[in-house]
Structure formats: C-alpha cells, structure tokens
Computed example of a mutant assay.
Amino acid sequence: MERIAAVVVTYNRKELLLQCIQHLLDQQEAVCDVLVVDNASTDGTAQALKQMPSPRLFYRNTGENLGGAGGFHFGMRWAVEEGYDYVWIMDDDSLPQPRALAELWAAHEQLNGEYGWLSSRCLWTDGELCPMNVQRVTPYKDLAEPVQKLAPVQMASFVSLFLKASVIEQMGLPLRQFFIWTDDWEYTRRISRVLPCYAVWGSTVVHAMKSKTIVNIATDVPERMFRYRYFYRNDVYLYRREGLKGWLWLLAKDAWHSVQVLQKSSDKLGKLKIIWGGFCKGICFTPQIEFCKSIKRK
C-alpha cells in the first residue's frame, strides 16, 4: 500500500502545532502519517505530543534550531528514508481543511502522477487568500484566481506542498543553508524547471499566521531584522539562475525596497546595509544540493 507522510516543522508554537496535527489526523477520504520535526522548541512541545497518542504520529527533535529550511530538509529526508511514497509538507500554523489531502490525491490521479509537485489554495483566517502563499505562474507573477481546478504554476510556498518521494530523490532536498525564507521558492522552482507543477484549487489550507501582511523590511520590527539578511542573500541565489531577467528583477526589487526604507524607516543606514549586504553575499553564495534515498521502500 502506498504511504503518505505529512511533514510538519515546528518551533515554539505548541498550541498551533496541536491544531495542525489534529486537522491532519482528521482528513477525510485519505490517510497520512504525521512526522513532526521539532527545531528544539522550549515551550513543552515534546511533552504536549505525549498527551496526543496516535499510531500515525511520529516525533523527532533536531537538537538545535535549523530554521524552516533546515527543518524541511531534515523532515523530507526522514520521510524518504523511511520509505514513504508521498510527502506532504507544511508549517505548524497550517490547518488543512477536511478534504485537503483527498483533493490533492484526486489531482495526482487525474495527472497520472505526471507532475513535479502540487500546491493547495491557502487562505488566511478571514477566508481570503493569504498573500504570502499565493503561487506564481512565473518567478515574477502571482497566480490570479484560476477558473480551472488545476492551474500550471512554477513556484509555491511550503504551506501544503505535495510531491512524490521519487521526485525528492531525483531533485534533491531543500537547501538547509538558506535557514529561513526563499527556501520554498528555490525548491519549487528547481523542480518546475524540469517537471510540470500545479496549484490545486480544490485543496484548501488555512494559514493561521498572526498577520497576512507581506513582510517588509521598511516597517518590520527590529527583532526580526536578522531574518532579512537571509532573505536578500537567498533571493540572489534564486533569481541569478534566471539569467539577465533575474538580475534585473533583483536590482529593481532591492532598489524599491531601499526607497521604502528611506521613506518609512528610522534606522535607514542599518536596513540599507542589510539589503545590499545580503545582495553582495548572494552573488557568491553556493550551497550544495544534498540527496537522499529510501532505505525501506519496497
């Protein structure tokens, strides 16, 4: 029997994680095991999961905070090496609706397995599309709400991404060196260069993040500034592979972000250093793709 693993990466969001797990265990017309990757949470996550016994729930602690990128790298390797045939990945604040997996599986069957990955429609808690998780039809253009249930796309977030373990074996794992941000764009674009990929509009997940506003260095709080160092560096790695158009996109984007910083920020110099320091680091950033193989799949 073919097996599906839902890989959930968590870090200090115990209450949201428990909701996510329950939504996964309650899926209708489709069954998955749940593999929780804990980035060394300090909020009692491990103890809470002991109060949620299920033969389909498995837990591993990474021992340190690997970031989202490292967590998904860890979890997808775990799933593939354990012999799962399909991997469904998401953040710990994702709430897959009752038929989310069933609709992904229906798309899988409709396509006869001929795809790189499938991505669910992602809503925020108000029922509207979550801007951070809208798929892209090109590296530069968001998907407009499609008429058809299956829409060809090239990039997607890791909030409800479904793919075959064989694709992971072929294309490698997410780049753990990214730590946070852009790892999902890079990974899905890596695959869509080779295989057709689709947004599945019948599969719905609610992303229960605090705010649906797209992150902005010009207005974000000081405690989150360290994240942007990864964002601007990782973006260069992603878009430089798109050739001249990618470089022009990068320069235009970072220039616009710089204008916003000059207009809206008090720490103008510090934020400009983050933008263009990250840009410079990205030029020579060369992380290596790592691969894995099943050691248990028959």
Rank of each mutant, 00 (worst) to 15 (best):
R77C: 12
P287S: 09
T219A: 06
N65K: 02
T182Q: 01
A144Q: 03
C292R: 04
Q170L: 14
E103W: 07
I275N: 02
T188E: 13
A79Q: 09
W78I: 13
S258H: 00
V215E: 11
Q154N: 05
K141P: 14
M1N: 15
G83A: 07
Q97G: 14
Q22H: 15
K212Q: 14
N12T: 09
S41E: 04
W105Y: 06
K296R: 12
P131M: 05
P139S: 07
E82Q: 07
I191G: 15
A69G: 08
W181L: 10
N133I: 01
L251H: 02
P139C: 08
V34K: 00
R77V: 12
N234P: 09
T204Y: 02
D184E: 07
L104F: 06
L118T: 02
L262Q: 00
K210T: 04
Q288C: 06
R224A: 03
Y198K: 12
E145W: 05
D26C: 11
A102I: 05
E109T: 08
C122V: 15
M52I: 08
W276N: 08
R77Q: 14
P196A: 14
F179V: 15
H108Q: 04
P174N: 12
V137W: 03
R56F: 13
C280N: 05
G44S: 02
P222H: 03
Y228M: 09
Y84F: 12
P287C: 04
L66F: 03
L269Y: 05
Y239C: 08
W117E: 11
K281F: 01
N216C: 11
R241V: 02
